[in-house]
Design a protein around this nucleic acid. Sequence first.
DNA 1: TGTTGGCACTCATATCGAAAGAGTGCTAAC
DNA 2: GTTAGCACTCTTTCGATATGAGTGCCAACA
Lengths: 337, 337
Amino acid sequence: MLTERQLEIVLSVVYEYIQTGEPAGSRTISKKYLRGSSPATIRNEMADLEEMGYFYQPHTSAGRLPTSTAYRLYVDSIMQRRRSAPAETEKWKKEIRERRQGVDSILGYVSQLLGKATNCVGVAALSALEEVQIQRVNFVRLGGSTVLVLIVLEGGLVHHANIQLPCELSQDMLDELARKISAVACGHPWGQVRDALFTYVLDGLERVWDTCREALVQMDAILNRRSSRLFVGGAQHILNLPDFQDIGKFQTVLSLLEQEQALADMVERYSIKQGVSVTIGEEISEEMKECSLVLVPASGYGRRTILGLIGPLRMDYEKSISILETIAEDLDDSLVN
Amino acid sequence: MLTERQLEIVLSVVYEYIQTGEPAGSRTISKKYLRGSSPATIRNEMADLEEMGYFYQPHTSAGRLPTSTAYRLYVDSIMQRRRSAPAETEKWKKEIRERRQGVDSILGYVSQLLGKATNCVGVAALSALEEVQIQRVNFVRLGGSTVLVLIVLEGGLVHHANIQLPCELSQDMLDELARKISAVACGHPWGQVRDALFTYVLDGLERVWDTCREALVQMDAILNRRSSRLFVGGAQHILNLPDFQDIGKFQTVLSLLEQEQALADMVERYSIKQGVSVTIGEEISEEMKECSLVLVPASGYGRRTILGLIGPLRMDYEKSISILETIAEDLDDSLVN
DNA sequence: TGTTGGCACTCATATCGAAAGAGTGCTAAC
DNA sequence: GTTAGCACTCTTTCGATATGAGTGCCAACA
C-alpha cells in the first residue's frame, strides 16, 4: 500500500520526532534522512500520507507529527531488528541478583530501576497466580472470629488477608484445618485444587462444617482478588520529559497508577505469551491516548512475571525494548533463590 | 513582643493567603480583617513585621507573603481552638470500618482517603513495631538454603522476608525452630525477647547451632529494618493545587514519596506522643521547605499508628487537622477486628 | 505619639503591532 | 514524476506601552 519511499518518510518522521520532540518538516527529512529527494517531493508525499492518516499538523505552518498509526508502523519495523542492550545492564543485573529479600523486594526494585533507566514508569507484575503452586497455608487467630489467612506460593510470594468466620474456632482447630487444606493443596496451584478442596477437605468436620466452608470460600476470594500483584516505580522520572510538562497529562497517569486493580488488568490484557508487546496510545484506551505501554513476559516465577513501561508516545522504543528484554531474561535466578 | 494588632495582622495575612493563594496587600487586610485601621497604618505595621521576619515580598510592588515564622504563629494559634470535623467524616468512618481485609488494606485506604479529602498526600504509618507483641513465627523452606520468614504481629500485621542460612535445614527442622522461637517470643514484643531468644532458644540445637543463630540474626534484621510500615496515598490530588503547578516542586515531593525509608524516618521524627504536630517548611528540611507535614498518632494498633498529611505550606491547616483528628480517633475498632 | 490621606514610585502583567522564521501548498518548468 | 520558486499562513519573539496593584514616605491631624 505504501511505496518504499513513503514508508521511509513515515519512519523518519517518527524517528525524528522521538529524537527531538519537535514536529518534523519536509526540509529536515530531506536533509537528514532522504538525501535523494528534495523537500518539495517530500512535501507532496507528506500531504498524501497525512490524508492516509499517518500524520497530522498542530497548525498549518508546522511540520508533521506522527499519529498512532505511524507509531505502530515504526514499532512494528523496529521489532524485527535485534538490539543491543546498553552497557549499564550488566550492573543492573548484578544489583538485582544481590537482592535476597524475596519476590516483593526484587520486583519493587526492578520497577524502580526500569523507571529510572528509561524515564518512564516502571512496572513489574505477577499474573495468573492461580496457576502457581501453593507451598503453605496457615490460619492465625486474631481475636473474635477474625482470622488471618497466610498463603505462601512457590517461590516465596506471600498472600495474606483477614477473614471473618461465622463462629469462633480455636487456634488448634484452625491449625487442624490448615493442615487438612495443606495436605490437598500444597504442591498444586489453587486453580487445580479449588474444587477438590470444597469436596474432600471438609470430611470429619461436621460440627464446624459451615465455618470451615466459609474459610475456604474466603480463601478463594483472596486468591481471586489477588490473582496478580503489581509493583510500580520511578514515576517521578517521567516528569523529566518535555511531554509531561503539562500537569494535566501527568495527573491522568498518576491517578491510574494508584488504581492497582485497573493497572493490573491493563498489564494482563496487553501482554502476550512471548516477546515484547507494544501498545500505543488509543490502542490502550481513551484516557491513555498520550501514552504507550511496553510489556514483556519475564522468565522469572514460572513465566508469570511481566515487566513493563508506561511512557509517552514518543518514548525511545528501541532503548526501552532492549532494556526490558535484557532484564526480563535475567530475572529467573533472582526470583527462585 | 508583638502587639495585639500586629498579631492580628500576621494571622490575617496567613489566613488570607491560605484562602486565596495571592499575596495579601494592606488594603485587603484593612478592608476584610481590621476595619478599624486604615491601609496606611497596616502598611506601617507590615513594614515592621517584615523586618521582624514574618513576611516577605516576591517583588516590591506586591503584597506580603507569610514566612514559615508566620505560619508557625498561625498554626500555634489555631491549635488552641476546637474544630468541628466536616460532615463527610461519618461516611468515611463507616467506609473504613467496613474494610475487613486487615491492617494493610485499612491503612492503605485511609491514606488515600486522607489525600483525597484534603488535596494533600495522605500518609499512614505503623511505627515502633518492635514494641508490638509477636503473635506467630513461621519458617518456610523455599529451596536450597533460602528460607521465608513469616512473622505475624498482634493485630494481624504480617512481616515477611527471605533469608539465607549457612546450611540447609529440612522443613521439619525449621518448624521445630519456629516452635521454639514462638514459645519464647509469642505474646511479647520483639524488643523484649530479643536477647532472651539468643540466649535460651538455641539449647539442644548444638548440631545446627550456627544455622539457627543465623536465622535469629536475620529475623532481628528484618524486624529492625521494618520497624515501621508506611502507606502513602492520593498523591495525584496535590496536583489540583495551584502551589504545585510548578513541576519542579512536585518532583521533589514525588521522589521523597518513593523513598519509603526516608519518609518513615521523617514521620517518626516529627510526630509527637499525643495530639497533632505540625511541622512547617524549613522546620522539616531544606528540600521540603515548600511543604508542611501534619501528623497525629492514632488510637489504632496500640497507639503505634500515625496518620499524616504532606501538603503545601498554605494548606488549610484547620481542615486538615480536624480531619486527621477525627479519623485518628476512630481507627481503633477497625484495626483490632 | 500614633494614625491617616495623599502621592510618587516600582514592578509585574497584559496588550499590541511588527518582524522573523518555519513550513506548507501550489504552480510551472524540467 | 520531480523540483525550484514563491506566495501564504501561522506561531513565536520582541519591544514598547499601558495598566494596575501595592508600596514607602511625607505631611497633616487628633
